[in-house]
Design a binder for these strands. Structure first.
Lengths: 193, 193
DNA sequence: GCCAAAGGTGGCACTGTGTGTCACGTAAGA
DNA sequence: TCTTACGTGACACACAGTGCCACCTTTGGC
């Protein structure tokens, strides 16, 4: 039923855009009442972005799977590589692309997407701190390192996703390239090394 | 009048929280109608986050003020250092702190804040690309470098702001420390170098 | 001093999202 | 067969945001 609603909604979003498609229109098109729609999704945004909720846990699992003594940056790169094209767990590449187009189109959806990324990052920062402790580093509350590295890794991943759209390289290579920018040459001016 | 509304609103937000404070309550407390409120602010969110709009332009100016041949990472660090505690242009440190607490409390505000940060970053990515061109680098659309570096710089700045709350060090030093994590040791596991 | 144009304001009606509540029907289980 | 539980539709409601109009005050020309 949820999948039915999603596919109906995606079609309507494609025709009229996200903002101009009312919940009423989606529910009616799917043959149910507005009230029932909200029993399947807590909000219109949730219908589009709900699948991203799972990604956070997957990333956390992927990071936990890396050895504690592996450098954090390497572990984060492996983590991103592990969930192929990242986005949504099941969903086809086409579906993912459709979702991305809708998100790109609407500021409020974009905001919700960024919020979910932010939640993931907080999860992973906590995990990164735990790793450090397990590796024997004394806990320092005012150390910006975990947050800086996790946040930077996400920034590189996002940059990788931007260029991955029109790239023929594999996701692993694309991520490695983006994260390599930081890895090899943080000083770099795009002109000279 | 806008300032009046903001201070009234901040008081109410402190008492009942952002979500549970209706526009009606703010307007009434400020002695005007709901309709008039929306003539001063296009939305309730805008009342809280509106001041951030200016920051993007300030950052762009600050980056443009740096020489084209300066390494991008250095230029970004100088840019962040230039706008002291970052946040809002005028506003006192107390006001900024009050705003941050409210934003932290509400997911929808947090989402709006992240969206505004994202818009700033896009502005700066474009500026970084221009710098590169001015410095004589051939334009490569699929180069993730500008987005990766700008995004990482923002991640470090955010990490700096997190620890800056309880730090006695200057903002410049705190930013330098957070950005130095990337600068010196992207490989770093928080345990060993 | 008088009148007209302009701008700020309140009131009202309306759309759309999201929630609480209740009543109905149907299917599963005793 | 009775009943319990669940999915559903149908309200009513709160709140954000918009469009429209009528009013009033201020400003400026005559």
């Amino acid at each position: 039923m949820q999948g039915e609603l999603i596919s109906v909604a995606q079609r309507l979003f494609g025709e009229h855009g996200y903002e101009d498609t009312t919940v009423d229109a989606i529910a009616t098109a799917a043959g149910m009442s507005r009230r029932s729609f909200f029993r399947y999704f807590s909000s219109k945004e949730e219908l589009v972005l709900g699948k991203y909720e799972l990604v956070g846990e997957q990333l956390q699992d992927a990071l936990q799977a890396r050895p504690d003594d592996e450098p954090l940056w390497d572990a984060l790169q492996a983590m991103f590589a592990a969930i192929s094209g990242k986005a949504v767990p099941d969903a086809s590449a086409q579906t993912v692309h459709a979702i991305e187009r809708v998100v790109e189109e609407s500021p409020s959806l974009r905001a919700g997407y960024l919020y979910r990324l932010d939640v993931m990052q907080r999860l992973l920062v906590a995990e990164a701190r735990d790793r450090a402790v397990r590796a024997g580093v004394p806990y320092a509350e005012d150390d910006p390192t975990p947050e800086a590295l996790v946040g930077s890794a996400f920034a590189c991943m996002t940059a990788a996703r931007t260029v991955a759209a029109s790239a023929e390289a594999s996701w692993e290579d694309t991520v490695a390239r983006a994260m390599g920018v930081i890895r090899h040459d943080p000083y770099r001016n795009t002109s000279r090394r």
